[in-house]
Design a protein around this nucleic acid. Structure first.
Lengths: 230, 230
DNA sequence: CGATTTTATCGTACAACGTACGAGTCAGTT
DNA sequence: AACTGACTCGTACGTTGTACGATAAAATCG
């Protein structure tokens, strides 16, 4: 997916094989990539992408602003790491049995949606950033699950992308309604005022109340049905 | 949808009813909202959201940077206007006959997708911005078309959102692959390297070549089928 | 052991950006 | 001639990301 090419790397020696952490062990390392990313996620959760400033993040970590740049090449990389962190997936209680494919797919996709809704900034950032490892992991899993379900090789990519597109689209839509919670009532009024000129929309209250979860699940079932029967 | 509430307004007297333009008429107005927005779209098309700077836009217009602020409250509003401009829809050669509902829906949705792909920044910006009038117009049209197709009132919102979600998701995915064209080969290599650890993905070349248009149309047909039969 | 390298932190400074402020120009009206 | 409103723009400020060393502490080596 998009994003600025391959992306820079931090100055810190790349930890290719995970074994020893060079400097930690005894004294408190005070700063660590994990802590930085975790705190960045906190900030993003609290105030959205606009609230993530390097100085503020450093403050909250009790460090100098430039100290972050030992662990992270630049802000862009930091955001990528935060995004990736949010998309981790531990997996379902996967039996691996062929007939369970459907509930495993649903589990993963609903978990994914839930992750994005817990961190609404992630949904709106995803389109502009590169595909992270955890996303690829989910795609890989989905791919295997669908293959087990009997989707033909020739249809596999189309099936995966259909599901991906659906989940992304549904979640972005849903999340962006949540995002405007800064002043829920003002946004509400704005929508009400705007939709006055659109009678059908107004009558159906399309923009106002929706059973988002129900709509999501309905569409998902629908897609899954179609993908295996075709 | 999201966005920062109601949004500020420019200093220029709001042109509520479209009749007279106060200052134009004879001498060249040199700057106008239309020209500003159109040029902003040019800049966005050429270099993406990162390339749109107020100073640069003013330069290209042969004006001082601060002159823009007479016509536009701030950059955010400008981006909203550019977004809205890009989503204009002139309508199909709509017959209004009930049996043509399907091709009219398809026409609008594919036109919408095409608009976003002509301006890839629009797809990735949409999730973070407010719903503009032209988007609402499309939703209104879609709503009427589906009603004509016989979709029950109770299912109407779910149907609209399903289609919307699908189009948004599919287009964002597609556009974000295009976005990484700054160095197409570098991105390509990155994806190839990354997907090494994901055998199923690699084997199916999920990330590399896809008949995007075909996949989009397939899923769309699929959704439309389901929405009316249910 | 002392010398040297690696790991990590951070203060200062700078360039780029959005935009507040207010001064300016020009046309039309009274 | 005085005034008003539409429009333009130069200067300047605050906020950002981050380049560039200057540190110090720990690890390694002779």
């Amino acid at each position: 997916m998009a994003g600025k090419g391959s992306g820079a790397q931090s100055k810190r020696p790349q930890q290719t094989d995970m074994s020893i952490q060079p400097a930690a062990e005894r004294g408190e390392p005070s700063l660590s990539l994990e802590r930085i990313v975790a705190t960045a996620v906190e900030l993003l959760d609290a105030e959205g992408i606009g609230g993530l400033k390097m100085r503020r993040l450093a403050d909250r970590l009790g460090a100098g602003a430039m100290s972050l740049y030992w662990h992270v090449a630049n802000k862009e990389e930091l955001v990528d790491l935060a995004l990736n962190a949010v998309f981790e997936y531990r997996g379902s209680s996967a039996t691996g049995k062929a007939e369970d494919w459907r509930q495993e797919a649903i589990h993963m996709l609903e978990d994914w949606r839930a992750s994005m809704l817990r961190h609404p900034w992630s949904a709106s950032l995803l389109p502009q950033r590169a595909l992270g490892a955890n996303i690829l992991g989910r795609l890989e899993l989905l791919s295997k699950t669908l293959a087990r379900a009997g989707v033909a090789d020739a249809d596999l990519n189309a099936a995966i992308w259909s599901l991906w597109n659906y989940v992304i689209g549904a979640t972005i839509t849903r999340a962006s309604f949540d995002l405007s919670e800064e002043d829920r009532t003002a946004g509400h009024q704005r929508l009400t005022r705007l939709s006055e000129h659109y009678p059908t929309i107004e009558r159906s209250r399309l923009l106002l109340d929706n059973d988002w979860d129900g709509v999501f699940r309905k569409g998902l079932d629908f897609l899954l049905d179609g993908l295996v029967q075709k």
